[in-house]
Simulated assay, not measured.
Amino acid sequence: MRIKQRLNNNVVLVEDDANQPLIVMGKGVGYKAYPGNRLNEALIDRTFVLKNELKSEIDKVAALIKEIPIDYIMVSDTIIKQAEKELKTEFGLSMLVSLADHIFSAVARKKKGIAVVSPLHWDIKQLFPAEVKLGEQAVATIHNTLNVELDDTEATAIAMHFLSSGNNYESIQQAMNVTKIISDIILIIQYHFQFEIDQNSISFSRLVSHLQYFLIRQVKEIKMMDMSDEMIRVVIQQYQSSFQCAEKVINYLDKSHQVKPSLEEEVYLTMHIERVRQLETK
């Protein structure tokens, strides 16, 4: 790897042997690092491939390391690595920038005694337990590394970073909007059948997962595969109550969010609702 630009003692812009631009991080990796020289790769802790908008990415990193101490960046990197392992995914440089900025701000608020609680705190805990567990682990990591004990509610705030930084959402706000809609839909289902869904059950987890991708398809205008008229007729006839419930959900989406899913989506939703109904009424 050859050095292109030293950003600070711990962050360097380099090019690999295939001329691929990379951001590398590590304690002391940028010390006496001069453009054109070979980099001491033994000092690298983390490598980020720069794919799109190269200058924009570099500017973001430069602003980050100028405003935020390296300890916050390194603890964020530790948290992200754990999340990548648990969620079996890969987060990019933008995730590091947003999470480090969030943790830095959260610690500053804590030191000033300012408490911020998301109105969706409990919804997030119920709907996305895997991400919230990672958020709880992150809060513990921050405590152990930075010696700052953040409020438990920060676990859900960090969980939203994991949700929004995947391939499904364009922003944390969009992820929060989807979370609120999912929570509303579950309330509609429970009210329709007059039962409470066991939130620890596999059926609940499957329903949440379906609703998540159902809503993503609406946001991204992804057309679902066609269903035959016969299949649609059979589902509506056999699962009348679940279809009526699905219609209530569709009406809610239309009136409250100006979203009008296709009949195929409504039928597919009916089948997922019916699965929950059967398990909850046994």
Rank of each mutant, 00 (worst) to 15 (best):
I216S: 04
I158F: 00
E149R: 08
M231Q: 06
L87W: 07
Q126N: 14
I80D: 01
T156A: 11
L127D: 03
H143K: 14
L39F: 02
Q190H: 04
E196W: 00
I236W: 02
R217H: 12
K111A: 12
H210S: 06
Y34T: 15
E247R: 14
A83D: 05
M74D: 11
L163F: 04
P21Q: 09
L64Q: 05
K51P: 10
K260N: 11
H161F: 10
L134H: 00
L43F: 04
P21M: 06
L22F: 07
T141W: 01
L39E: 06
K66P: 00
V132K: 04
D123Q: 14
K133G: 00
L163D: 04
P119N: 00
G30Y: 03
I189A: 06
E196C: 03
Y239E: 14
D45G: 07
E274M: 06
S171D: 07
E90S: 12
T47A: 13
S164M: 06
H210M: 10
D152S: 14
E266I: 02
G30S: 07
L64T: 02
L187Q: 13
I216T: 12
N144K: 14
S56T: 13
V49E: 06
N167H: 13
Q238Y: 05
K133A: 14
G135F: 01
M271F: 03
I188F: 10
E247H: 07
K125I: 10
H143R: 14
D198R: 09
S228C: 01
F243Q: 10
E266M: 13
E86C: 04
I44W: 03
V132A: 01
V117C: 04
H121M: 01
N9S: 10
T78I: 05
R38T: 09
A42I: 07
M225E: 14
D184A: 08
V219R: 07
G113P: 12
Q194V: 12
D254I: 08
A83P: 06
D17P: 00
D123W: 03
D59R: 15
A18G: 01
M95I: 07
E53T: 11
Q5T: 07
V75L: 07
K111C: 03
K125D: 05
Q174D: 06
I58T: 00
V11P: 00
S164C: 07
L211D: 01
H257A: 00
R46V: 13
L263Y: 02
V139L: 04
M224A: 14
G135N: 02
L215A: 05
L211P: 00
S105Y: 05
L39G: 05
S165N: 15
V148C: 01
V219Q: 11
I58V: 14
M271S: 12
S165F: 13
P119S: 00
E196Q: 12
